[in-house]
Design a protein around this nucleic acid. Structure first.
Lengths: 364, 364
DNA sequence: CTGAAAGCGCTTACAG
DNA sequence: CTGAAAGCGCTTACAG
């Protein structure tokens, strides 16, 4: 064992490998060459058509002899048959796969969505391909293109800014598609999103009801619907209370610096409460608060977004808008599979209401 | 707009959809029926073979007329040709896809791994299929089986307990495979893991060097290598210092209750520092500390695992073992693709050293 | 009740 | 320099 840089490579003797295998050869099936329908047909002395029917549970339908069917099933099992799904897809035109494009699967919010979609799809007999767009319209297009070339039956997409064209093109080509988390007002396509306006309104209203006098929001400078709706909800609540709006927008590039600047401005302006409409913005705010010894909830009230361990474990538990992630994911999968199975071309928009989790950070 | 339960469904008028499309028909390509090599060949007045060669950059190799090649390329572009990857895979026997099975893609650690694998694979021209096993050997097997049926060229697997048989079978069938995060001593298969012994040793040793007198560990009750190595590393450091080991093991089912019990026991036993060998265990410990007003690092010293926002934002920043996640992921992809491309059957074990991030939680 | 055959879209020897 | 043809593994009318 030697140390190379910061890792070591251990080459294990191949002979041990071969030996270990040899001892198994007698008891278990060897499937080095994958067995095909033809192999089974040959061994059973029937045509591949019969085998295909039986293995796909269409034996009854085609009135295949019970005896024959049982025989085929048994041989398939013995030979450890695995259908080649690519071949099936090629022939039948449907692969049983869904493509999912999110912003970044390493982001906890999207990781959870990915997982919930995976489970929902699995329950309905579908497999999922994931990809991360990094909020780049270009990358999103490439990803989707690859997914389509792989023959996915439909797509669930978290669209990024400037991706309207790509989405339009998918619609035009009648590719079953559901937008998730965000949608475009001008494109007639199915979507499942949080009721962002309502969530932001509730969050802001709660801060006002708690007695804060100058409530601000730090939001991303993007035209995307979900963000604009969150800002609108905030503005509505503030206006209703006869307060002035304090909207601080930041660009996503150079995020840390931009955030710092916005936060400083908020504090300088005498903002006494903040609605933080994404989990990333909230986390940054918590760091700022620690670094500048800001007193929560006295000096500054807080409502964040999405939640997470950091929200729970922060010195003052953080209030937040909780998204029904599973519900969103399941709904998206259901709508998509309905479009695929029933060739349902009608467009459906679903807006799900979130809940407000109130804790100490917003109760002065 | 009506409210149904907690979400609303908005049916958008189909006519708008059709109209919106109609306006595009003149300017852009319509690709309702996917165009195939045959279509291009027909339009170009050549055989499909030529088209295939040219489009795959084998024009030179087959000495195809420059003129012809250019013509074909142009037509392919005009017709917006997209290769059917399933067909290609069927014919060529290689799909350019990798299958990845992790425990749970919604877990931040695995989400990050997924992302890093995605990027590394993408750089090498491969696409990735993900699946979550939920630490169930049964589910893992089903997942892998599906992946193989889909024709993946190779697999990266985070194996769960009792999955030795499945792994053995994959080896036997010569399916390119790399284990990630954990490995089995008795199976001769490539793997990429953290140097768990070293990481645990360093973490424990650091606690001892900081002056703690009774260092404990709360670990999972699993036989998996990575966990056993972390326990061994802990024991080694403790023994070296002439201290007694305090190993508290908990089962993963009924985790919260089991953890509480273990934690209570540790405190009752007078443990004054803990090494927490997974992120989940660390997070639970932080909750316990908050709930019981335990003073960190005075009353209890802490070194956790993996890190995250919660570690940074906790009232006392938490020390932890940082895994080189990207390095692990990239290495796994490299080894796997080497096996695939070069039909390299040699088995390679890589163990990468982690780093210890020291903060206040372990400095009394 | 069962079989022969076409064809999904591609790649790749083989022949010219 | 180019074409005709086989074949990957499957499904599905069609004919008997």
């Amino acid at each position: 064992m030697q140390n190379l840089l910061d890792y070591e490579i251990i080459l294990l003797p191949l002979c041990r490998y071969l030996h270990a295998n040899a001892s198994f050869m007698k008891t278990e099936m060897i499937t080095l060459k994958k067995v095909s329908l033809k192999d089974i047909a040959a061994k059973a002395g029937v045509s591949t058509a019969l085998v295909s029917f039986v293995l796909n549970g269409k034996g009854q339908e085609h009135r295949i002899g019970e005896e024959t069917a049982r025989h085929i099933l048994q041989i398939a099992k013995e030979m450890n048959y695995r259908p080649n799904l690519a071949a099936r897809g090629l022939r039948s035109g449907t692969t049983g796969t869904l493509g999912v494009v999110v912003s970044d699967i390493s982001n906890p919010f999207f990781a959870q969505i990915a997982r919930d979609i995976e489970d929902a799809a699995d329950k309905l007999g579908r497999t999922v391909f994931f990809g991360s767009s990094d909020e780049s319209a270009e990358k999103m297009k490439t990803l989707i293109s690859g997914l389509i070339n792989r023959g996915v039956d439909g797509l669930i997409v978290v669209p990024c800014e400037h991706s309207e064209d790509t989405i339009q093109e998918l619609c035009k080509n009648k590719i079953p598609l559901v937008l998730l988390d965000r949608n475009f007002n001008d494109i007639n396509v199915s979507y499942v999103v949080l009721d962002n306006f309502n969530a932001a309104y509730k969050a802001t209203r709660h801060l006002i009801d708690s007695g804060y006098k100058k409530v601000g929001i730090i939001a991303y400078d993007v035209k995307l619907n979900h963000m604009q709706d969150r800002i609108r909800g905030y503005k509505e609540a503030v206006a209703e209370a006869g307060m002035a709006a304090n909207v601080l927008v930041i660009k996503q590039k150079n995020f840390d610096k931009a955030f710092d600047k916005a936060m400083r401005k908020a504090m300088d302006d005498g903002v006494d409460a903040l609605f933080l409409p994404t989990v990333t913005i909230t986390i940054s705010c918590l760091h700022y608060i620690n670094d500048h010894n800001i007193e929560i909830p006295k000096q500054l009230g807080l409502v964040g977004f999405d939640g997470g361990d950091a929200f729970d474990l922060f010195s003052v538990p953080v209030s937040y808008v909780s998204q029904p992630v599973r519900h969103l994911s399941v709904k998206a999968v259901e709508i998509l599979i309905d479009m695929i199975v029933n060739k349902n071309a009608s467009v459906q928009g679903v807006r799900i209401v979130g809940s407000l989790i109130v804790r100490q950070s917003s109760l002065p």
